[in-house]
Design a protein around this nucleic acid. Structure first.
Lengths: 193, 193
DNA sequence: GATATTCATTGAACAAGTTCAACTTGGAGA
DNA sequence: TCTCCAAGTTGAACTTGTTCAATGAATATC
């Protein structure tokens, strides 16, 4: 199936891995369709899955005590969906994950994942590398937040994620950047002139 | 040696592991003393080591284009020191790591670490868990940065890291919080009243 | 023990970003 | 096609945080 092929390519891009092992790994994932607007996770519930995005686009966000949504990141094809905090600590999730378009994901349950870890040491390596890359990404993001203005962060976003920039609303982009949507609008006007 | 015992406790707190394996792992680390003010890493150089802090305190910071230092985090006993970005991508480091006190660390070279990964699959698991926890920490940090004011972040820092708060200067704390040291001073005055 | 040097504090002027309210535009659904 | 609702824009007042400059307190160095 095509969805499995994407995941296989994703894994073998990360490291050397034998084809039969790839098959076994992919067999533990379930393909799911998610319609635009649907949630794959709501805060308060424990996150008992991890999912690989094959097609579509999601937003991962929190809601603060004033009721404002704050987007942590967007996930399009080739990204992962999960609340790793909730998943590893078996706690209530603080994250919400919602499809912004009709999407297709490959999902694996906590149980199946534990199984994979126990059966195949190579799976440990793959996720070790994946989390290592995630740490790098978060660290770079914090550095940008501490050294760049809102305008610079906006321009970086446009340049780094042109695909996402055209699919999501400006309100969502502003939320991701950590600014109000009114201010984003004013920033855009400046750059346009 | 006492330093090894700390690292052993750190590892076996994270997961089940046999004693002889712990010994083998620790044997790959070298104990080093670092004097106050000394750097274990300077930006521009590749980071070819990871280090576990046994005693003392460090700051991990970047320097932006205006020459301002921005502290990403502090590391006291039981924390790790590295530029994971530089380490995994074999690129020039953007981070600086400096001892704020006379300190003791256990350091492992890139080569020795690759060795460990190849000899012991369990080591993959340990670092997979470690990076997973790191992702959780960075994610929580971003959420706080996007939902809390400078005052709230300061109070959280005091409550979460009381040990660090008394060892480092207010300038460093301000830099960590992402605000000017003058503004931190004004915040402190408010809370004191 | 004297002297630099760095650190914390404070005030005033300024810049960056928010909030609220009003208005316009553009789709999605009936 | 019409309607309605959500998205984007703009302005004014406001809040949060910065910058620069001056001062006193605390540390390190010789």
């Amino acid at each position: 199936m095509m969805s499995d092929d994407l995941l296989k390519a994703h894994i073998s891009d990360t490291m050397e891995i034998a084809e039969p092992l790839l098959d076994s790994i992919c067999a533990s994932f379930d393909e799911m369709e998610v319609r635009k607007g649907e949630y794959v996770l709501r805060q308060g519930n424990p996150c008992r899955f991890e999912a690989y995005v094959c097609r579509g686009c999601f937003r991962i966000f929190v809601i603060d005590e004033k009721g404002n949504e704050k987007i942590l990141y967007f996930a399009e094809a080739d990204w992962w969906l999960m609340d790793i905090d909730s998943f590893m600590n078996r706690s209530a999730s603080v994250l919400n994950i919602q499809a912004l378009e009709d999407s297709v994901i490959l999902s694996i349950s906590q149980q199946e994942k534990d199984n994979l870890y126990q059966r195949f040491p190579t799976v440990e390596k793959f996720f070790r590398l994946m989390f290592q890359k995630a740490v790098v990404a978060w660290q770079r993001r914090l550095i940008r937040n501490h050294t760049q203005t809102a305008l610079e962060r906006y321009q970086y976003f446009l340049q780094k994620y042109p695909g996402i920039a055209v699919r999501v609303t400006d309100r969502h982009i502003a939320s991701y950047l950590g600014i109000s949507h009114e201010f984003l609008s004013k920033i855009k006007k400046k750059t346009a002139v």
